[in-house]
Computed example of a mutant assay.
Amino acid sequence: MPNYDFELILSRPLLEAELDPLFQRTYGNVTVAFVRDMQALRGNEQPGQASCRWQASSLSAAIMEVIEQLEGLGPVADAPGLRVLSVEADPLLSMRDIAERVGRSLESVRLSIRGTRGPGNFPASETTSSGHRLWRWSRVAAWYGVHDPQLREAGPTSRAINGWLALRDVVPQVAPAPEEVTSALSAVLSHVA
């Protein structure tokens, strides 16, 4: 089974006390930003974020399994329950991540970004995180000519699961079960992608 990389946006950051249970449930395949305690959580209006690398039969199965693991962590202290708000399946990568994925040295990637190696016009970075620029994998893969079959699943799967997440928050009584979403995506993905 392939590994899938994706990001989940959470209703809140995790608490430090939730890290061990998260690690036990996900075997270290989900990394998160966290806050130390409830005091730090109060007044923190920022959502949480989880970077995931999960092995499954499909991207939709991987996402649904991680959602189940995160939302099943259980309550800690007075923290509100943890909910997944959205998914992004076309990951943002650092230069080091790019080098690893395309099989090049870090210096080769740095030179490509600067325009001194390759055809030029390297994709612009999408964002900066902790002083480091991040690039969207689909744009970098296209620039390097890397065919990543998982990207074919990324767009339709993200849109469908984000729609499901919104539906279950607005009218949960009509939202299908996660297995139904995964099954439907598997059945039609070859026609949509």
Results as ranks from 00 to 15, higher is better:
residue 76 V to W: 09
residue 76 V to S: 15
residue 77 A to M: 14
residue 78 D to W: 12
residue 78 D to Q: 14
residue 80 P to K: 13
residue 82 L to H: 09
residue 82 L to G: 09
residue 82 L to Y: 14
residue 82 L to Q: 14
residue 87 V to F: 10
residue 88 E to D: 14
residue 90 D to N: 14
residue 91 P to W: 07
residue 92 L to Y: 06
residue 93 L to P: 15
residue 96 R to S: 15
residue 96 R to L: 15
residue 97 D to M: 13
residue 97 D to Y: 12
residue 98 I to P: 10
residue 98 I to M: 08
residue 98 I to R: 07
residue 99 A to H: 12
residue 100 E to G: 09
residue 101 R to S: 01
residue 102 V to E: 11
residue 103 G to I: 03
residue 104 R to V: 04
residue 105 S to G: 15
residue 106 L to S: 13
residue 107 E to D: 07
residue 109 V to E: 06
residue 112 S to A: 15
residue 112 S to T: 12
residue 113 I to Q: 07
residue 113 I to F: 12
residue 113 I to A: 06
residue 113 I to C: 08
residue 113 I to G: 00
residue 120 G to Q: 12
residue 120 G to V: 11
residue 120 G to C: 11
residue 121 N to R: 15
residue 122 F to H: 11
residue 124 A to C: 05
residue 125 S to G: 07
residue 125 S to P: 13
residue 132 H to S: 04
residue 134 L to R: 13
residue 135 W to Y: 15
residue 135 W to T: 02
residue 136 R to C: 14
residue 136 R to G: 07
residue 137 W to V: 01
residue 138 S to Q: 08
residue 138 S to W: 05
residue 139 R to L: 11
residue 140 V to A: 11
residue 141 A to M: 07
residue 141 A to E: 11
residue 142 A to P: 10
residue 143 W to P: 07
residue 145 G to M: 05
residue 145 G to T: 04
residue 149 P to L: 00
residue 149 P to Y: 03
residue 150 Q to K: 12
residue 152 R to Y: 00
residue 152 R to P: 00
residue 152 R to G: 12
residue 155 G to T: 08
residue 160 A to V: 09
residue 161 I to V: 04
residue 161 I to K: 00
residue 161 I to T: 05
residue 163 G to T: 03
residue 164 W to Q: 01
residue 165 L to Q: 10
residue 166 A to Q: 11
residue 166 A to E: 01
residue 167 L to I: 01
residue 168 R to L: 00
residue 169 D to Y: 00
residue 169 D to V: 05
residue 173 Q to K: 08
residue 174 V to S: 06
residue 175 A to P: 04
residue 175 A to D: 03
residue 175 A to G: 07
residue 177 A to W: 03
residue 178 P to V: 02
residue 179 E to T: 02
residue 181 V to T: 03
residue 181 V to F: 07
residue 182 T to L: 02
residue 182 T to S: 02
residue 182 T to W: 06
residue 183 S to N: 10
residue 183 S to W: 11
residue 183 S to L: 04
residue 185 L to Q: 02
residue 188 V to T: 10
residue 188 V to G: 04
residue 189 L to T: 02
residue 192 V to R: 08
